[in-house]
């Protein structure tokens, strides 16, 4: 079920004060390059059905290939989960897609943008560590991208404030990061990424630093949030369950050099509790499939990949 059209994604509370403020910021930041509108989901600029495409992407560091001849495609509004052992170049891949890094070989196309600056304008990256600014309140942290685009502090915070309740963060606005729990901090970090209004979200082990129980909650929360506010997502994780819960497709990478070992389409029965979902035959089967691919990927010789 690939290529489900996302022409009319859910727009956050159209006509709300925050939208108007954002529109103003967009005008204020008019000279800041070909970035997409700050209000995500107001339709892509070109209106074309383009997502993310990687063709034959290789990146070497000092002669050693971190990722080699990787092909990936993510249709717009879909979520791709990338799993693999450590050292398989998962984070490298996100750096490449985001435009923070450039491949040695191959082409990366993000919504029609191939240059690094243009890719950077379309991608928001959420790192494993929350990387919240410790001197800023949760609200000010979430609003930082709006300030970067030229909005005043006051306007930026006013625009973000209404989102706190929607992201399960009501009451946390004025706390400093260190006063929040790990799960809350991660939510603030996601909200900050979300507020940037990019079409593409790159999530680098977003819940890797959380304990298992908090992580389960955070996954549920992210899944629900992304169902309500669809984005084109590349999620990198080493947690197979997380990959299956959050991704529409799972790509398994093999390590040294990082390369695609398997692709698994995720088709799970809809709308049940997490616990029930985890117990379904479909989920168990998919998990086994991914785990098998991981096993094979890691046992394969690094020079000549075995036929899978």
């Amino acid at each position: 079920m690939a290529g489900r059209g996302r022409d009319t994604p859910v727009s956050p509370a159209p006509g709300s004060p925050s939208d108007r403020v954002r529109a103003r910021a967009d005008l204020a930041a008019g000279g800041s390059g070909p970035g997409p509108g700050p209000n995500p989901g107001s339709g892509s600029v070109s209106g074309e059905d383009q997502g993310i495409r990687l063709v034959g992407v290789t990146r070497r560091y000092g002669g050693v290939a971190a990722v080699e001849r990787v092909d990936l495609a993510v249709p717009p509004g879909r979520r791709l989960a990338v799993v693999g052992p450590s050292g398989c170049g998962k984070s490298t891949l996100l750096g490449l897609i985001s435009g923070l890094d450039e491949p040695d070989e191959g082409v990366i196309d993000v919504l029609g943008a191939t240059g690094p600056a243009a890719r950077l304008a379309r991608c928001a990256l959420m790192p494993q560590r929350d990387l919240l600014l410790p001197w800023r309140s949760a609200l000010a942290n979430a609003a930082v991208s709006l300030e970067n685009r030229g909005m005043s502090r006051r306007a930026a915070r006013a625009a973000v404030r209404p989102l706190f309740a929607r992201f399960g963060l009501a009451g946390a606005e004025d706390f400093l990061p260190r006063q929040l729990s790990g799960g809350m901090r991660q939510r603030v970090a996601f909200l900050r990424t979300f507020v940037a209004g990019k079409e593409v979200l790159l999530l680098d082990e977003p819940f890797g630093a959380l304990d298992a129980i908090t992580r389960a909650e955070a996954q549920e929360w992210l899944r629900a949030t992304l169902e309500a506010e669809p984005r084109t997502v590349v999620l990198v994780t080493h947690d197979v369950e997380e990959a299956l819960l959050l991704g529409h497709e799972v790509v398994v990478l093999a390590a040294r050099p990082g390369r695609v070992a398997a692709r698994v389409a995720v088709d799970l029965p809809a709308a049940r509790s997490r616990r029930e979902l985890l117990a379904t035959a479909e989920f168990v089967g998919l998990r086994d499939e991914v785990l098998a691919a991981l096993e094979q990927g890691s046992s394969a010789p690094s020079v000549e990949p075995e036929r899978l």
Binding site: A29, S32, G35, G95, S98, L100, L120, C123, A124, L125, P127, R129, L131, L133, W135, V144, S145, E147, N148, R149, R192, T193, A196, K198, L202
Partner: peptide, 27 residues
């Protein structure tokens, strides 16, 4: 200043100046 913070800010429309002003100087 943590280089990951700079990278993160660059994906949030951070320019050299705004990274200096909002990240490096306070840090």
């Amino acid at each position: 200043v943590d280089d990951d913070l700079r990278r993160m800010m660059r994906t949030l429309y951070g320019t050299r100046w705004s990274i200096f002003w909002r990240v490096e100087l306070p840090a």
